[in-house]
Design a protein around this nucleic acid. Structure first.
Length: 580
DNA sequence: GCCGTTTTCGGCCCGACTGTTTTCAGTCG
């Protein structure tokens, strides 16, 4: 499939080049083809060898011309048109268009006039004031480019949802309490609970927009006001991210919410459905001719289009629209379904709180059980050896007698060593209620070797859960290379539960992998990997990620009662006894 | 360049804002 991805990338780039040239509609056509190729289940090479360019033309968005270019790519590894473009315009468009206000057309002009081909050369041109005198540019544009570059450098433009959510909730509460505010919603990627977000959009219903605008601009956490109009204000908060607040009319509130929630792909698809029905959808409403027929609520709009309302987490045009039209939307898991947390650390290893403190906090959250899973041998994290694990179990036994209302389970997060073995002896693992294992070293292994490493660990019948499977850290560490399809099949075969790690930086499994696991019938657990009491609230993020992966209550084991969870784990133990 | 129950031409998602112009192109969401 790697071939499909590479080809898609080339097609996207051709689209960008056409855009730079100002050619109409071809960018759209190439992007559509690229998207299809990207999502293809079968390898393009196989399709071509089966039925030539004729069969390639069956791919949506691929016609005779692009089919021939795919053929070119398959035979020669490159596409002539792409090569010619690249020679003519050798600039790093992805890097340049990441700047706010910079698109392909401006990038092309700046390259041709000033030779700016990447961030570095563009910054040099802007600093020496060569941009402002150009036709169609000016002082302001030059300044904005410099600011955009500095923002990119500082933050790479995206923020971890988990890090900014508390600030967003605070702002939400403040605006909601303002007199005259009838309704407020957060929209955009925050509402869709994407793991990283670019900025935050608020929608407000109020008869006094000016008051809302004034109030928001005067919030103490505001460090910059980008713009303040009658119904829209754009702000930069001290944490470094931007917030847009819009006041919209009541009759358009639902359509505005739908529109600003996105995703863009979802909206494009929805608008096409409107067009098919002779209607027009915009942020102002759903229209037949000039007559508005829906707009006050999202539900009303979707209904008029023959669709069920879709949870924002699903709105990525990844099949949710089809499922909605057939009344086959999943019953997504909810935060209230969670009965306990099975992955957290205490003062025994690298955690900040004692078992007792964590247990009482979990009890206050209404949990039925809490699993303690301190690190094994990991030197940096003050990991436990066999002796200390046995000592910790004794402490847990004592606490279970002392604290009522919540059951503390004995677990551990042990290491999957380079060869796939586990670093705690089976005799000690046998005494635990459940066992988690994860990769904490040798991240840069080859794909085949890494896959074998993980599957070998799964074969240990004492193992219940694999934590943060791909070991990625958003913005810091790439996913480990592995054959995910193979690993998911192995998880199913060996009855291994895959973790949805809720640390903002991890989010691992991520949404698309959750969906793959679910479709393969693999059970998952949503865990916080808490290192202190505050982290227990990350559960909300993991649940959101699971919802983005279409997970339902039945897919997640820590929605089960203690009794069911125990017998689920015990069943595995019994099977093992029979085998041994 | 692609597509078609409006099928070989004519449309392709839509509207607003910004910064530059003096009626609009480019960009964004």
């Amino acid at each position: 499939m790697a071939k499909n991805q590479e080809l898609a990338k080339i097609l996207y780039e051709i689209a960008d080049y056409f855009e730079m040239e100002g050619v109409a509609f071809k960018p759209y056509a190439y992007r559509k083809a690229a998207l299809s190729v990207e999502a293809l289940q079968e390898d393009v090479g196989e399709i071509y060898s089966k039925g030539g360019t004729k069969l390639l033309e069956n791919i949506p968005g691929v016609g005779r011309n692009i089919a021939n270019e795919i053929k070119e790519y398959l035979e020669r590894g490159k596409i002539k048109r792409h090569q010619i473009f690249r020679k003519k315009l050798p600039l790093n468009l992805n890097e340049l268009t990441a700047i706010e206000g910079m698109g392909p057309r401006k990038a092309k002009i700046l390259y041709q006039k000033l030779g700016a081909k990447d961030l570095k050369s563009l910054e040099r041109a802007a600093r020496s004031h060569k941009i402002a005198p150009l036709f169609g540019f000016g002082q302001k544009t030059e300044q904005n480019i410099l600011q955009g570059i500095s923002f990119l450098k500082r933050s790479k433009g995206r923020f971890l949802l988990g890090e900014i959510l508390p600030t967003i909730e605070e702002a939400y509460e403040k605006i909601a309490k303002l007199r005259g505010v009838e309704k407020i919603n957060v929209a955009g990627s925050v509402r869709r609970m994407k793991e990283t977000v670019g900025d935050v959009d608020f929608l407000v219903l109020s008869k006094n927009p000016k008051k809302v605008m004034d109030f928001c601009a005067s919030l103490p956490e505001v460090v910059r006001i980008w713009g303040k109009g009658a119904t829209k204000t754009s702000l930069r908060l001290e944490q470094g991210f931007d917030m847009d607040i819009r006041v919209v009319a009541k009759r358009s509130y639902g359509s505005a919410l739908q529109y600003f929630t996105g995703s863009k792909e979802h909206n494009i698809a929805i608008r096409k459905i409107a067009i098919d029905r002779g209607l027009k959808l915009s942020e102002y409403g759903l229209f037949r001719g000039k007559k508005i027929i829906a707009g006050e609520t999202e539900k009303g709009i979707y209904k008029k289009l023959g669709l069920q309302w879709m949870p924002p987490e699903l709105r990525e045009n990844q099949g949710e629209i089809e499922a909605s039209s057939e009344n086959k939307l999943p019953q997504l898991i909810n935060i209230d379904d969670i009965r306990g947390d099975l992955h957290l650390h205490t003062t025994w290893s690298e955690g900040k709180q004692t078992i007792e403190e964590m247990a009482s906090m979990a009890k206050a959250m209404g949990y039925e059980y809490l699993g303690i899973s301190d690190h094994a041998n990991l030197p940096v994290a003050n990991g436990l050896d066999e002796k200390r694990f046995l000592k910790q179990m004794k402490e847990i036994d004592g606490l279970n007698k002392k604290i009522g209302g919540i059951k503390i389970l004995k677990g551990a997060e042990i290491n999957i060593l380079k060869d796939g073995s586990l670093d705690i002896k089976d005799q000690v693992l046998d005494k635990m209620d459940y066992v988690i294992a994860g990769i904490h070293s040798s991240f840069k292994m080859g794909k085949a070797q890494m896959t074998e490493r993980i599957i070998r660990a799964m074969r240990n019948p004492r193992l219940n859960i694999i934590s943060h499977l791909t070991a990625r850290k958003i913005g810091e560490r790439e996913e480990c290379q592995m054959d995910l399809g193979k690993i998911i099949r192995a998880a199913k075969e060996y009855n291994i539960v895959l973790e949805v790690n809720s640390q903002p930086k991890r989010m691992d499994l991520k949404d698309i992998n959750i969906r793959r696991a679910k479709e393969a019938g693999v059970k998952m657990v949503i865990s916080t990997d808490a290192h202190n009491g505050d982290h227990l609230r990350f559960m909300e993020l993991g649940v959101a990620q699971a919802r983005r992966g279409w997970a339902e209550k039945k897919d997640i084991i820590n929605t089960q009662s203690l009794g069911k969870l125990s017998s689920f784990i015990k069943k595995k133990k019994n099977n093992r006894n029979r085998l041994e």
